[in-house]
Each structure stands twice: as C-alpha cells, then as structure tokens.
Simulated scan of single mutants.
Amino acid sequence: MARIYLGPAGIPLSSRGKGSVDGVKRVAELGLNAMEVEFVQGVRMSVQSAKELGEVAKSLGVRLSVHAPYFINLCSPDREKVEASKRRILESAERAEAMGADAVAIHLAFYGDLSPEECYSKIKESMQEVVEKSLELGITYVKLGAETMAKETAFGTLDEVIRLAKEVKGVIPYIDWAHTFARQGGKIDYGAIIDRLREELGLTHINSHFESLQLRKGKYVDVHEPIDKEAPPFAPLAKEILKRDISISLVCESPKLEEDALKMKAVLESLGYKF
C-alpha cells in the first residue's frame, strides 16, 4: 500500500500568519500532510525555532522537508563560492535535523566551463566533505537531496543524481518530476523512474517536487505553472504510485501551492487512495 505525503513548497498562500509554524497549522487544517520549508533566499531560521517548528509539525502529523538556498554552486571556479555553498548546505541540514525534516533539496551546481564529468567529480568531492562534516555536527537523520534540474546548463540529470547517491552515502536523489520531464525533452516514464530508484538505490522513501512548466518555442523551460497545464500530467504519476507499495513525498511547487496540492489530493482520492 502506498503511503503519500502531500503538501506545498512553503507556507500556504491562505495561511493567516506568515511564519512556518502558522504554515504547518494551515497545511493540517487543509487536510494535507507535508510541507517543504523554504530557505531559498538564505537560512534565516535559528536552530531553536527549527526545533519548535518540528514539534508542532510532529503533533499535527505533517512531514517536513527543506529546500536549501539557491545560491549554491559546487562547480564554481571561485573557491570561496564553493566553500560558501558547502556552508549553506550544512546550515540547511542543521535546521532540517532540528525540525525532524527528512531531506534537503539542493540545486548543486552549474557546469560552467567544466565538462559534466569534471563537474561531477567536484560535486562528489564536496558532498563527501559535507556529509563528513554533517556527521561531526550530529546530523544523522536528514538526507542531502540532489535535485533533478530542468536547465541543460545545470548539474542534475536523473542519471547524475542516481550516480551521486550511489557513490556518496547520505545523498539521495530529490526528484523534480517536471524538471526531469523537461530535461528529457518533454517525455517521462514515471513508473520506470520509481522502480529505478527503488531497485538501484533501495530507497524506502522518495522525495519529490511536482508542478507544470512553461512551453517556449517548442521547449519546456524552468518557469513553474499551475498543474492544469498538464506539462507534465499528474494523473499518470498518481496511478504509478498507487500500483506500488511505496512511500513518497509530493511537494507542490506550482504557483498555486496548496490549491494545486488539493487538486493532486483529489486525483489520488478519485483513484481510491485514503489520506
């Protein structure tokens, strides 16, 4: 039987308060059971606040994950930027651990002037350092999620993130279904990806994002759209999840956040899933 955790990327738009605790309470009120805490503009939450947030989320049955800052590039030619990137990942992971979040979504790098293989080597080395440092800091629960990316200039094909997870213990793929769809030229086989993650990595839980993307000049670009754009469609993913005994988080990154998360919930319920 599938176990599905579904909710918005960040504080619901309909939340009366603007803090993460208010956001988690609103998620629970809406009948959703997941929320991604967004550190995309920087880690501005104290460890103590993260602990308090985690206690509220646990009491309400809301599963948390975290999105690390966008200002991360482990393949930057500037050594200081690489070191700052590692610090941002660690700061995100420290707060994620304190709040009991299971994973941190990370945009790892841009290739820049490097070949994909050269960039991969740099990322692998940096992520091994980050994992070692995180263990020194007592971070043992949270996983570091290498996000699949839409832009061809960015590190993050499905093959790359799976390979990194195989070679660096403590790293998992964080699947953005729409990014992967775009990177694969507007095609996706949801079931094959789920099976690959489970068979090759033995994942017991899959962390993922879902949204639709804009089509420009015949190509899908990384501009998030409401899910009714059907690029990619959600219903086939829902069906593939429900065919399997699988645990998965579906974090809605549509601009309509909870409204679209509730549409996703309705699709799953129409197929017989009970939240």
Results as ranks from 00 to 15, higher is better:
residue 17 G to S: 04
residue 19 G to N: 12
residue 19 G to H: 03
residue 20 S to Y: 09
residue 20 S to Q: 02
residue 25 K to L: 07
residue 26 R to E: 13
residue 27 V to G: 00
residue 30 L to E: 01
residue 32 L to E: 03
residue 34 A to D: 06
residue 35 M to W: 00
residue 44 R to A: 06
residue 45 M to T: 10
residue 45 M to C: 04
residue 48 Q to S: 10
residue 54 G to I: 12
residue 57 A to Y: 03
residue 59 S to R: 14
residue 67 H to R: 01
residue 67 H to D: 08
residue 67 H to L: 14
residue 68 A to P: 09
residue 71 F to W: 13
residue 74 L to C: 12
residue 75 C to I: 04
residue 76 S to N: 13
residue 77 P to S: 11
residue 79 R to W: 06
residue 81 K to C: 11
residue 81 K to A: 14
residue 83 E to C: 06
residue 84 A to G: 10
residue 85 S to C: 13
residue 86 K to W: 06
residue 87 R to C: 07
residue 88 R to L: 15
residue 89 I to Y: 05
residue 89 I to V: 15
residue 90 L to K: 13
residue 90 L to A: 15
residue 100 G to I: 13
residue 102 D to W: 12
residue 103 A to Y: 00
residue 104 V to D: 10
residue 106 I to L: 10
residue 106 I to F: 04
residue 111 Y to H: 12
residue 115 S to L: 08
residue 122 K to C: 05
residue 125 E to Q: 08
residue 130 V to I: 15
residue 130 V to C: 12
residue 136 E to I: 09
residue 136 E to Y: 00
residue 140 T to Q: 04
residue 140 T to P: 00
residue 141 Y to F: 15
residue 144 L to T: 09
residue 144 L to D: 10
residue 144 L to K: 11
residue 144 L to M: 15
residue 145 G to T: 07
residue 146 A to V: 13
residue 146 A to S: 13
